[in-house]
């Protein structure tokens, strides 16, 4: 098995005179969870649809599991799983019926009962899909995406509209899949989701890769100044510092006991992300009316 699940070089795609993808280079390693972030219109969806074999590129090289997705040969489809951003329909069937039928298209599918169990749908297996909750319906989409035992899974905004508990449960499911060796390409608007799940994060805007790193290190987060805050004389006070430990020690000496309401924070992934895309978001809004 190759070390690289997805290899993209100089990828471009133009709609009219707008460059949706503009010379993108990116590698996704086999076995990792890779989160692709970017504002609407950044070229995320176009890129993912080219990788999924749904859309043709203008130029550049793309290899997904060593195969050019253009033309999407059946043997290649057998090795990938796709969870689409919006999936509906199937209302009149049950999860078990759809999973069984879908599994039959694949060369070595997972056991349907096992997939129902893993996605927490065993109890709903014989209910009409129309009656499932939003979270259950999304778990069914994932079940359909993994029933073929894919080596690579595309997850497009999987938890939009979930309540917090449903998201936590869903993340557990994704972690299990990643643990079993499935390579996952995740696109999401939730920064905490990327932080929770991804081994590496890529930020794209205006069709180019702006930053690529682990969630913890993205955009130099680790080396940026920390903010130390506390309550004093009824007001909130804070100091930005490169040496937060020393600052806390000084505070500890000044106060008799606990420092009131003490917090030490570094820029969140969200802050870093918003900082990265800020110049491009303005461009987007002026150049490309939605």
């Amino acid at each position: 098995m190759s070390d690289t699940a997805i290899r993209i070089r100089e990828l471009t795609k133009t709609y009219g005179d707008r460059r949706a993808v503009d010379g993108l280079d990116l590698d996704v390693r086999t076995g990792e969870v890779f989160a692709l972030l970017g504002p609407n219109g950044a070229g995320k969806t176009t890129t993912v649809e080219i990788l999924e074999g749904f859309r043709d590129r203008d130029s550049g090289e793309v290899a997904v599991l060593g195969t050019d997705p253009h033309g999407s040969p059946r043997a290649w489809r057998d090795r990938i799983g796709i969870v689409l951003q919006t999936a509906g329909g199937l209302d009149l069937l049950t999860p078990r019926e759809v999973l069984r039928s879908t599994a039959r298209s694949y060369a070595s599918p997972r056991d349907v009962e096992e997939v129902l169990e893993a996605t927490g749908l065993t109890e709903k297996a014989d209910d009409r899909i129309a009656g499932l909750s939003g979270g259950q319906r999304r778990r069914l989409d994932v079940a359909l995406g993994i029933v073929g035992r894919p080596e690579l899974l595309f997850l497009d905004e999987p938890t939009t509209g979930f309540d917090p508990q449903a998201r936590r449960d869903f993340w557990g499911l994704i972690r299990t899949l990643a643990h079993d060796g499935t390579t996952i390409l995740l696109t999401t608007h939730y920064l905490d989701e990327a932080e929770q799940l991804a081994d590496r994060v890529g930020v794209i805007a205006a069709g180019r890769l702006l930053a690529l790193d682990t969630p913890a290190a993205l955009g130099g987060r680790q080396s940026q100044e920390a903010t130390v805050s506390w309550e004093e004389d009824g007001t909130r006070r804070s100091v930005r510092t490169a040496t937060p430990t020393a600052e806390v020690a000084t505070l500890a000496a000044r106060f008799p006991g606990e420092v009131p309401e003490l917090t030490v924070t570094r820029p969140s992934l969200e802050d870093t992300y918003l900082g990265l895309i800020a110049p491009h978001v303005t461009d987007e809004r002026t150049e490309v009316p939605a």
Binding site: A75, R77, L84, A87, G88, Y106, L144
Partner: peptide, 15 residues
């Protein structure tokens, strides 16, 4: 309706 609700796209994503 299958084209609109994405059922066809999903089928196309399988082998």
């Amino acid at each position: 309706s299958e084209r609109d609700d994405g059922s066809l796209k999903r089928l196309r994503s399988t082998p």
